[in-house]
Amino acid sequence: MTTRDMTKDSPPAGMDTKGPSMGRSLGRRLEVRMLVLALLIAVVLSFLSPFFLTRSNIFNMLDQSVVIGIVAVGMTFVILTGGIDLSVGSVAGLTGIILGLSLQHMSIPLAMLVAVAAGGGIGLLSGLLINLFGLAAFVVTLGIMAIGRSLAYIFSGQQSISTIPEAMQNIVYTNVFGIPSNVLFLLVLYALAWAYLTYTKGGRTIYAVGSNKEAARAAGLSTLFYSVLPYVLSGALAAVAATFSISQLLSADPLMGNAMELDAIAAVVIGGASLYGGRGSMIGTLIGVFIMVMIRNGLNLMGVSPFWQGSAIGTIIIVALLVERLVSSRVNR
């Protein structure tokens, strides 16, 4: 799978072995451990359900990873700075409605642009409130979450919008080199995000801000800009996720993205990020997303009642983190 290629991916020769092979000795190990966990889950599930490892199910799972995976990218950026964004689910819902309404008046690309800009704008608002006025990220984004959902209902008139042009489906159902375009988009997005966080000034600043904001400021880094940027990205990516979701369903529902923030946060945390900031990686998050999707998919295949699935997923997340904590304290002592 692509995940393994990415972990092995060594920095381009010449450019950097000296550069940011940063925090890796530990970070790497953590990602490797999570990869092992992901494979373990895959093996167990393939024994439990013969259908699990079929080609069609793998593509099915990749397809299911797209929406949550896109949101988790923004969430990783936010969590790396030591923040949290609880509003992604309702921003996805609101921007989905905005997209649905815009499509009634303008072309597809323009409507998408409006939706993504709206998402980014909401993120900018949260980011500025948090960083200019020193408000708690948890509280600000909780407020935005409530406002976003409420506006989604109001704008949509409490019903889903089903006047989406069929052409939207091309976004999802075009194959490039045999890979569905939405999956390809996801992988490219992760590669770009990873490269940004590893090899650019902005990326390293985001880590530094999350790890010790005061020191970053005293060293002359642009802490305000790079503290706000993740929220803008998170909001914009929530809109992108909404776009993909709507393209598949050809319907925009005000309830879309409900509880999505929890899945995204879970994926980022399973991927090894610290909620205190400064620690985490795109590779880890991608593995976290796959773990979440695999578990849900496996439970579906085994015919576990949807009402029990919440308990199962919650238990598995907690047990996984507990085991990881025990293992890492063993490894690092």
């Binding site: 390293r204 530094a208 010790n212 020191a215 970053a216 002359g220």
Partner: peptide, 18 residues
């Protein structure tokens, strides 16, 4: 002064990065 999650090298180069 110290950014604990960055390596020694990145700490050394922090102001340079800024």
């Amino acid at each position: 002064n110290i950014v604990p999650d960055l390596t020694v090298k990145e700490n050394l180069l922090l102001a340079y990065l800024g």
